[in-house]
Amino acid sequence: MKNISADVAKAAIKLAISTRDEEKKIIEELKKSNYSVAAVDIGGDLINSIPKIIERTLVASKKTGIIKDYHVHEGAVAGAIMEAITQVNPRAMGLNFGGKIGIARYDEHISVCLFISIGLLHLNDLAIGLGHRSIPNIG
């Protein structure tokens, strides 16, 4: 039996860890398989950037048609990105970071992946967080 949740999570992870050139190819491939996908660059101080991360994730999700302008859809995406932020927060708290968010949806499954590089002097640490939600197909 196919595990759609895992496949959607893999798609979000692929987008988040890809370069811009790789991202374009991945998006084309996933769209052929009826996925709705998007990727967004982010960066800054993690704690102060949380509202901006949520906003950018929601805007990208709506703009690309991953979700519709329904509070159930918005809540699912906001919850998934908050889950991802919670997973990377202990490693990045108080530090600057840069990275990317990958968003993937197939049917009612949606995953949001946050992949970041955390600046620490001349060393960079990496962290990845993943959130998944199930949302109804409305309209």
Rank of each mutant, 00 (worst) to 15 (best):
K14D: 13
Y70S: 02
D21A: 11
D45A: 03
R105M: 00
D7W: 09
I128Y: 07
G129A: 14
E83D: 12
S61K: 01
I53P: 00
N124H: 15
C113E: 02
I103F: 10
K14M: 14
L126N: 09
P51S: 05
A60I: 09
G44A: 04
E83F: 06
Y35T: 02
N34H: 11
A38E: 03
Y106C: 05
A39Q: 04
K32C: 03
C113P: 04
S33V: 00
R20P: 15
D21G: 13
E55G: 09
I27F: 13
G131K: 01
I81M: 08
V40M: 04
I26Y: 02
H122Y: 04
H109S: 07
E55C: 07
I67V: 11
G79P: 03
S36K: 11
H73P: 13
D107M: 09
E83A: 08
V59Q: 02
R20N: 15
V37Q: 05
G94L: 04
S33A: 07
V88M: 09
I4T: 15
N96M: 15
K24T: 04
I42V: 01
Q87P: 14
I53C: 01
G119V: 13
S5F: 06
E74N: 00
D45F: 05
Y106R: 08
I128N: 04
G94Q: 03
G102E: 05
A84K: 01
A38N: 06
E29I: 11
V88C: 10
K25W: 15
V40W: 03
S117E: 10
R91A: 11
H71M: 13
G119P: 12
K52C: 06
L30T: 00
G119C: 15
I85D: 06
H73E: 13
V88P: 10
L15T: 03
A92I: 05
G131W: 01
G79H: 01
N48Y: 15
G94E: 06
H73R: 11
I26K: 01
N48M: 13
L126T: 12
A78F: 04
N89G: 15
L58Q: 02
L123Y: 14
A104P: 02
F115T: 08
R91P: 12
L114G: 10
H71L: 15
G43Y: 07
I81C: 07
I118F: 02
T86Q: 06
I4F: 12
K32Y: 13
A11K: 08
A12R: 02
R105L: 01
G99F: 12
A16H: 00
N34C: 10
I128F: 06
L15W: 07
T57K: 04
L120I: 11
A78E: 07
L95H: 13
T57E: 03
L120Q: 09
R20M: 14
M82A: 13
S5P: 04
H73V: 15
G75K: 07
M82Y: 11
I67E: 04
K100D: 01
R20G: 14
H73F: 11
I101W: 02
L30A: 00
I81F: 05
T57L: 09
S111E: 08
E23M: 04
K52D: 06
I85S: 09
L46M: 02
D69A: 03
K31P: 02
K25C: 14
L58I: 11
M82C: 14
A6N: 09
R20S: 15
T64G: 00
I47Y: 12
S61G: 08
L121I: 06
N48G: 10
